[in-house]
Nucleic acid binder design. Structure first.
Lengths: 144, 144
DNA sequence: TATTGTTATACTCTATAACTATA
DNA sequence: TATAGTTATAGAGTATAACAATA
């Protein structure tokens, strides 16, 4: 068996493969991957800008712009809590919720296709290992 | 065992994890991930712009700009073959070769850390499965 | 003074359309 | 006419620095 790539570069290859497909699915829903990730983190609870910037691994100005663009499209809404008028809580709108639900349904339905090359019992094993990796130490919450 | 995420979204999560680390390693070498991927594809052979655009999944104008930026830094060199003076062959310079070799050594050395949560025999199995996925149908050559 | 966010600026990546030079 | 690349333009993403408002 040929083995001319390091495990590191194979992981990058897998990641590129997944991200290309993911970007295509996002585009089908008129979203960018960054917007999809942001929406996903707001799906179940509103969050403040600083918290979100941390979760997404972004600097705050970058998040401000990201939020501007999807707020313009009516997918999220900025709200100022009374107890701290510096802060902003970000909520999804009903349209935003609907959009992100439809997106993740598609992601769940078509991304796992890339595992079709594996025999069924390997797919189950693979899934367990991926779960361990993304919930282990070093996980960044990026996948939402 | 809790299981509240689809396999699709877990794959995206893994991919985000890998890409964040990869982007950091690229930054340590003063490269963006797109530049790293381009250099990697030129590592062993010169290529034409159209071929590269296809391999990278880019439109040709996007590639022109990408090449401009790393050519300015002396990592690649445009060359016109005599037999077709419309064409451009892209070569890595010695500096480019050195840079990409150092980068991929670091990727190979530190990216596999994310698998430390798995027992050793699982890591071997995981690696075999990743190899199958990225060399299977649907593979895009993106990982280089 | 410290914290929360935004504005200003700049650069990279990427897309589409129009263009140039060569075949 | 068809092909190989480039230029023009635009929008998204992200970074740093400077700023405003509130605590």
């Amino acid at each position: 068996m040929k083995h001319d790539q390091s495990l590191g570069s194979q992981l990058v290859g897998l990641s590129v493969l997944v991200q290309r497909r993911h970007a295509q699915i996002c585009a089908d829903h008129c979203l960018t991957p960054a917007q999809a990730q942001l929406l996903c983190m707001l799906k179940d609870q509103p969050r403040g800008m600083s918290e979100l910037a941390g979760l997404l691994g972004l600097a705050k100005p970058g998040l401000s712009g990201l939020v501007d663009r999807i707020e313009r499209r009516g997918l999220v809404r900025r709200e100022t809590p009374e107890h701290d008028r510096r802060a902003v809580m970000l909520h999804t709108t009903p349209l935003g919720k609907e959009t992100v639900d439809a997106l993740w349904a598609d992601v769940g339905a078509s991304l796992p296709d890339i595992l079709d090359v594996l025999p069924a019992e390997d797919r189950v094993h693979f899934e367990r290992m991926v779960t361990a990796i993304i919930t282990g130490p070093g996980a960044c919450g990026g996948g939402c």
